[in-house]
């Protein structure tokens, strides 16, 4: 390495960023790392071969969804996540999660939990490991079939977030009980009637061909109903009131993650809906359909956890969801 102090020179750069980036940010000016790491990285033309797994389309093909965009880089992640910022954000969150787990463990808070609360937490949270696995599958699918780096990138992040959450839920299970509780929960997921609506919802989503429809089904509707129900209304409100604040500490990651991720989900829907009335109509139709199915699917869980209060809570959640999507330009 040269020992000369090269800082002393001031040189005028030939350009401030890449040409394709400059075209998108309104001229040659310094660009962010999110922009340089995202714009136009995915190939768009001159593909050499058709996929053997989908001969009807190009490797990357706009026609894999009914949503039509003039520019697929109209989608921006409000979190500005590229790999570096994504891992930094998750690393901070996992650090909090880690200290929460350590706190709960070191203070013996598990043995202080009322048995009914511990039991409910296990019954409610552990089958969700499988649902999170479904979230991993579906977001990997969107990453695979989606169009453009602005789409593929946040979806691989989200796919791995779901895996991370499944792993946190596993740890909760191992902390509150042991391995046999995981097996029991899987059995419930497979066979217990109260989980079958959700399982069917997820399995049906596995075979969707339109990836934007899948985005609506999973990321907008399913997450949008389930996270408020489970982590906000049941864990943070109900279980906490019953002396289970330790459970809320163990699921803090999920609560924070949902708050953050929903902003990006909203931005995505909003951008697509704003593009054209046809998009808005298609998105609204999907959302209507999946909302109806989604509410039905989570009903038995809500009733099981909240008893008489379930209908009121579900009503709230549905209302909140409706007003959320209305702000995004959808008409239910």
């Amino acid at each position: 390495m040269s020992t000369i102090d090269l800082r002393t020179v001031t040189i005028k750069p030939l350009r401030h960023t890449f040409t394709h980036v400059a075209e998108r940010i309104g001229g040659d000016k310094p660009a962010t790392r999110y922009q340089e790491g995202t714009f136009d990285i995915q190939a768009t033309h001159n593909f050499h071969y058709r996929p053997t797994w989908d001969p009807d389309h190009e490797i990357f093909d706009r026609a894999r969804t009914a949503i039509v965009m003039k520019d697929w880089y109209a989608f921006r992640d409000p979190r500005q996540f590229y790999y570096g910022t994504y891992t930094a954000a998750r690393a901070r969150q996992q650090e909090t999660a880690e200290s929460n787990f350590a706190f709960v463990e070191s203070r013996g808070l598990v043995s202080a939990l009322p048995e009914a609360v511990r039991h409910l937490a296990l019954e409610l949270l552990l089958p969700l490991r499988h649902l999170e696995w479904g979230g991993n599958m579906n977001n990997a699918q969107i990453c695979d079939y989606g169009y453009g780096t602005a789409i593929s990138q946040p979806h691989i992040y989200k796919a791995m977030d779901h895996l991370g959450i499944a792993q946190y839920l596993t740890r909760v299970g191992l902390l509150l009980a042991d391995e046999t509780a995981l097996d029991a929960a899987k059995q419930q997921w497979i066979a217990d009637p109260k989980w079958q609506g959700l399982r069917k919802y997820v399995e049906d989503s596995f075979v969707l061909k339109d990836w934007f429809e899948l985005f609506v089904a999973h990321n907008l509707v399913l997450d949008g109903l389930l996270y408020p129900l489970v982590y906000e209304r049941i864990v943070d409100d109900d279980i906490t009131m019953k002396g289970g604040s330790a459970i809320a500490m163990l699921t803090l990651f999920m609560t924070e993650w949902y708050g953050e991720t929903a902003k990006w989900v909203d931005a995505t829907i909003k951008t697509a809906a704003a593009e054209s009335p046809a998009n808005a109509q298609q998105l609204s139709q999907w959302t209507r359909e999946y909302l109806q199915r989604g509410v039905r699917a989570i009903q038995p869980i809500a009733r099981h956890a909240l008893g008489a209060n379930a209908e009121a809570v579900l009503g709230d959640i549905e209302d909140q969801f409706k007003s959320r999507v209305a702000k995004l330009g959808l008409a239910l």
Partner: peptide, 11 residues
């Protein structure tokens, strides 16, 4: 032949 999920033939 190319192993594919459906007929795989192009100009």
């Amino acid at each position: 032949a190319v192993a594919a999920v459906k007929p795989y033939e192009f100009e």
